[in-house]
């Protein structure tokens, strides 16, 4: 039992430490594709370090929500990490606390408070960004729902550890259209949720065109560091859900030995790297959509998700 707790904490540590690296690698790769030198892959760590050592300025017009939100944004992905398979293909100590729906709610809570905090300061850009995030959010919501329903429908469960095994037992299940379509739909969702091209441009610096970034414009110092770090972890966690739960449990430790789990760390990081490469391709080959074309993008994601469900229905 203590070993399970230790592995669970190890999972959290991996997410905490590796997530800025993932974002750093993605940024670097994108810049290389654009024929730029690019900043170091460790730049995100340096940014976070720097921000922690700066003074924090908080508007006296703001309420407790503004002060509380960075902690929530930081804590939500950690909480989710306790529930989902990051390194092991068997449930760990805290996994009983919630299933995939629970994890989704926790992440949504962080998003909700981020939007509230953006409105709280009275900065016009914050409110604009919040409303846009909500727009993307409520368009993405039905897709999330359908994806989850389809997963339940196929796997007869919402527990991630059961879901991940359905795709590979028997092996031909991996090519089941509902599986492939769910993966495509969820990949589109990850792009929308984490503010990637074609929904949002994460490297843009023009406040009027921002969607995701403008919510945290008012934060400084430790608050900004927590928000940034939380964002990295959310990205990492969503990739883990996509790779480990929805695609296949390959590379995860199935034994309980310390060596098995330690060996899983590089394998999982390798999987994350592959996903980052895919995202780089998408981000470098597409252009950002007009705000009102985002509905079409997410509509397509919804169609893909429903098609997954239909594919399942037709087979029975």
């Amino acid at each position: 039992m203590p070993r399970m707790i230790a592995y669970n904490l190890l999972q959290v540590a991996v997410v905490l430490l590796a997530s800025p690296l993932a974002v750093g690698v993605l940024n670097r790769l994108k810049e290389r594709v654009q024929s730029k030198q690019g900043s170091s892959i460790f730049q995100v760590y340096r940014d976070i370090w720097k921000l922690f050592h700066k003074d924090q300025i908080i508007s006296d017009q703001s309420t407790w929500i503004f002060r509380f939100t960075p902690y929530l944004i930081f804590a939500a992905p950690i909480l989710v990490t306790l529930l989902i398979p990051v390194l092991t293909s068997y449930p760990l100590f805290f996994a009983f606390m919630g299933d995939m729906l629970g994890a989704g709610f926790v992440l949504a809570l962080g998003g909700f408070f981020a939007a509230l905090a953006a409105v709280d300061t009275g900065n016009p850009y914050g409110a604009m960004g919040a409303s846009r995030t909500r727009m993307v959010g409520f368009l993405a919501e039905p897709v999330f729902m359908v994806v989850f329903f389809t997963v339940c429908f196929v796997a007869n469960s919402t527990i991630p550890y059961i879901v991940q095994q359905t795709w590979v037992h028997p092996k031909s299940n991996f090519f089941d259209p509902s599986h492939v379509l769910i993966v495509i739909a969820f990949f589109m969702l990850v792009l929308a949720e984490t503010g990637k091209i074609p929904v949002d441009n994460p490297s843009g610096h023009f406040e009027l065109a921002m969607i995701d970034e403008s919510k945290s414009l008012e934060y400084s110092g430790a608050g900004a560091a927590l928000v940034k770090w939380g964002g990295c972890m959310k990205f990492f966690v969503l990739l883990c859900v996509l790779l480990n739960v929805l695609i296949a449990p390959w590379g995860l430790a199935s034994g309980t030995g310390i060596g098995d789990v330690a060996w899983a760390i590089p394998l999982v990081l390798l999987k994350i790297l592959a996903a980052i490469l895919a995202i780089t391709v998408v981000e470098s080959s597409l252009a950002k959509l007009r705000l009102f074309r985002i509905t079409a993008f997410l509509g397509l994601a919804l169609v893909v998700a429903v098609a997954a469900m239909l594919a399942r229905m037709m087979r029975i």
Partner: peptide
């Protein structure tokens, strides 16, 4: 056979997606 069937279903799914596209 079950592999072929699965692939055929996958093609069907992609085929339909192209209609949406």
């Amino acid at each position: 056979m079950s592999w072929l069937n699965a692939w055929n279903q996958l093609m069907a799914g992609f085929f339909l997606l192209c209609s949406f596209g």
